[in-house]
Design a protein around this nucleic acid. Structure first.
Length: 116
DNA sequence: AACGTGACACAGC
DNA sequence: AGCTGTGCCACGT
């Protein structure tokens, strides 16, 4: 029988959903990085994919809590308004100066460490 | 179907 | 110590 279309479920889907799940788990007032999430998912080299995943992040995913490894709001430009990301972060008690989160290392939330 | 782009990260210079 | 180049993988044209 021709197995019609073998739905080769792309792992990416799982990857993306995992990303969303992890991001949703980021506590308020904390931040994480693309690399950390990617690393938690097992593909630390594919940090870019995490960013891309955010691009299609559904509602409820605090993408503003995800920054680059430098603690910089690299993705603020993709928000509704460039200031939205910073505003949200500041509203959560974080301090943002020049598009960079202060005390990033203290506020850093590592899924691999927090979730196991 | 191939090339280029992209919300990153790391090694090399 | 900052800049450039390369790797990664999926998506858009």
């Amino acid at each position: 029988m021709k197995s019609t279309q073998q739905q080769k479920k792309p792992q990416a889907y799982n990857f993306f959903e995992n990303v969303y799940d992890v991001v949703k788990l980021i506590p308020k007032g904390r931040v994480s990085s693309y690399g950390a999430i990617a690393n938690y998912l097992g593909t630390k080299m594919s940090a870019r994919m995490v960013g891309w995943a955010m691009h299609g992040a559904p509602k409820g995913v605090p993408a503003h809590r995800v920054l680059n490894r430098n603690g910089m709001l690299t993705g603020k430009h993709h928000f509704k308004t460039p200031n939205a990301m910073q505003q949200l972060l500041e509203k959560e008690g974080l301090k943002v100066i020049k598009d960079k989160v202060q005390y990033f290392s203290e506020k850093f939330w590592d899924p691999a460490k927090e979730l196991g």
